[in-house]
Amino acid sequence: MTVLVRDLRPDVPADVEAFAHVRHLALPFILWTPAAVVHHLVHTHPEVRSRSFVAEEDGETIGTAQVGLVHDSPEPGQAYLNIYVHPDRVRRGAGGLLVRTAEEYLAAEGATKLFAWVLDEPANRAFAEGRGYERRRSAHFLRLDLANGTLPPLPSPPAGVELRTAADYADDPRPLFRLDAETMADEPGDVETEFTDYEAWLAETWRHPLLNHDLTTVAVVDGRPVAFSSAFTDGRERYSTAMTGTARAYRGRGLARLVKTASLHRARAAGYMEAFTGNDTGNAPMLAINKRLGYEICGTEVRYVRELG
Rank of each mutant, 00 (worst) to 15 (best):
E104M: 00
S50R: 12
D171W: 00
I289T: 03
R51F: 03
T277H: 05
G189S: 02
C298H: 00
V48Y: 04
A159N: 06
K291C: 01
E182S: 10
P87E: 05
T217G: 13
E56R: 05
V70W: 14
E204T: 12
L98R: 06
N124G: 09
G189D: 02
T64C: 10
T281H: 05
V67R: 03
Y304I: 02
H40E: 15
I297C: 03
A247G: 11
R131G: 06
A166N: 03
Y272S: 09
D280N: 09
S138P: 04
L114W: 12
Y239F: 15
A256R: 08
M184A: 10
I62R: 06
V305A: 14
A275H: 01
S240Q: 15
E134N: 08
T244G: 04
R137C: 08
L215H: 13
A247I: 13
S52M: 14
N283V: 11
Q66F: 12
S156T: 15
Y133H: 12
L27N: 11
D11C: 00
P225C: 05
V161H: 10
P122M: 10
D7A: 06
P158T: 07
F276Y: 14
V221H: 12
V259W: 04
A147N: 01
T101K: 04
I83V: 15
S156H: 11
L215I: 11
F228D: 02
V90I: 13
S230W: 11
D72E: 06
A249H: 07
A275D: 07
A284M: 01
A26H: 07
P34V: 02
R224A: 14
A147S: 06
P122F: 13
V42E: 10
A219S: 13
S230F: 01
D72H: 07
V38P: 02
R136A: 12
V220M: 10
R164S: 05
V220L: 09
Y169N: 12
A123E: 15
